[in-house]
Amino acid sequence: MAEEKVLDIENLTIRTQRGRTLVDGISLHLYKGEVLGVVGESGSGKTLTAKTILNLLPENLSWEADRFAVLGADYLTLGKKDTKALVGQKIGYVPQNTGSYLHPMIRIKDQIIDGYLRYTKNNRGEALERARELVKAVGIRDTERLLKSYPWQLSGGMRQRVNIAMALMNQPRLIVADEPTTALDSTIQMQVLDLLKTVNDLYETPVILVSHDLGLVKYYCERIVVMYAGQIMEAATVEQVFSNPKHPYTRALIKVIPSLNIKKGERLAEIPGQLNAVGTAGGGCAFKERCSFRQEACEYTIREKTVADNHYYRCNLDF
């Protein structure tokens, strides 16, 4: 199969108006049919990166990149209107903050079919039929009540699933799901992710799955990107990341996965320290303060390395 690049981002940087860097030169590539997991510390820039792809970056932020192509369209040259049409038509987005993404005064059924009606020639009846099917597919029993409700009449998990159904309405060519199952228990979580996986299998729709749940990412993704303080610390296939993690942060992350076996009185393992502000590393490693393998070199320099199988990491050490 000729590999078709769906996402080609080179050196993306996101800054505030005051010039503070939030995302610091990351590169992302995604191929047709692939499921890419994005994990990383809270505040590391996962959502901002996703929002840039959706052209939804808050107004007080700006981005620049050497290359930024989504589904073959070059965002660097594409006009505002065309970008908006591309996003609305071809990208399905599940936002992290599901509550504020829905309009409180519009019934679910009207919100869910809005984008679909705008970009297809189908009529309202067909749109509602499709909405009904999708809402059922994400495990909602009370379909009719849900469709008639306003967002505030729904539980958190129901709202999240409405967003997932909405993202799938237009048969997207790319799905960006930002923490899509945080409000769902494991039974429904699986059902929802299986649905995404089915869409991925059937139509080779590529998926970006932002999640803090490593177990889930391990299960559903082929490749993983590990972010920290606005940078990509490691990027590799799932097997590589879990069997042969190269970055100390990735190792720490794998170690702190909570499990059912943890004893009651025992403290949970944590990664000591806090995420420090992006761009304060001063040329050195952003993770150095919390790293137990810190060396002198980490203060002022960082080595980027790519080993076999496109396994990228950003660390001065070899494991």
Binding site: S42, E179, A183, A252, P258, E270, I271
Partner: peptide
């Protein structure tokens, strides 16, 4: 804690 990554969740 459902919106938190594992290490922050543990904290």
């Amino acid at each position: 804690v459902s919106a938190l990554d594992v290490s922050v969740q543990a904290q």
